[in-house]
Design a protein around this nucleic acid. Sequence first.
DNA 1: CTGTGTGCAAACTCTTTGCATAAGT
DNA 2: ACTTATGCAAAGAGTTTGCACACAG
Lengths: 143, 143
Amino acid sequence: MDPLKAKDEQSIDKRVRDAGLRPTRQRLALASLLFAKGNRHLSAEELHEEAQSAGVPVSLATVYNTLHQFTEAGMLRILAVEGAKTYFDTNTSDHHHFYIEGENKIYDIPDTPVRVVNLPQPPEGMEIANVDIVVRLRPRRDA
Amino acid sequence: MDPLKAKDEQSIDKRVRDAGLRPTRQRLALASLLFAKGNRHLSAEELHEEAQSAGVPVSLATVYNTLHQFTEAGMLRILAVEGAKTYFDTNTSDHHHFYIEGENKIYDIPDTPVRVVNLPQPPEGMEIANVDIVVRLRPRRDA
DNA sequence: CTGTGTGCAAACTCTTTGCATAAGT
DNA sequence: ACTTATGCAAAGAGTTTGCACACAG
């Protein structure tokens, strides 16, 4: 077996274990799809289709369960974009997004130099969980 | 009739007309609820309930239609928060939000001094429609 | 073995749609 | 009158849940 692949699989396995989840076939397969290729923004349905294509017959319900378990474990973040679908982001660090209106596409803002200034104090008894910035884009009307 | 109320109703009427919409009973009533009391963040269902309480028997479908028509006319903005529900904001100018996790509550960031620096160039052929900042809050664990 | 995870299908929530009736101009 | 808006109920999309079977430890 390809040693590189073996190593990836080991680290995936560790990641899932460290999250306190049993490394089942399905969870490992989903984790591989999610974390193998860098930062991704996926809906449950998209991940489900990828799994099918990859020959891993996982059910949609399990995909939802798994995505939420990974999210609770801090391996994923939920993206707040309007519209019905929930997107999950494999990059849990501070970074922000472009959102293309009408296309339902999300992209990382590259090199994320974006910063927020003058953040207000949160109200009594609350703390800031995180700050999401969505830069909504549309096709230029002129030009 | 109370002259103040009459004046409000006139301006509501004008607002709806200016949006190119016929000032029907329902649209006027919903516009009054939406715009009478300053900035608000409402879901369709919440507005529907308010209308019922106010004695305006409008159907939920009409509330949805109306909210979308108002949005297209630029009188409302859709708020992007995670979760299934769509929220509409009566304040269409540049300002940002606190979101309380678990409560599904949205508040304006007061006096909005928040600003984003180092916004990147949008990709080719795209322009920035707007920038949404959501500061997600959670109860403090300590203290 | 024992308990957790999975798959299926049904349930649920929010939102949209189709069509007959009602209201605005 | 003519046209657009409304209400209802049904359909639709996305997500969650309950329960029997399967798999990991």
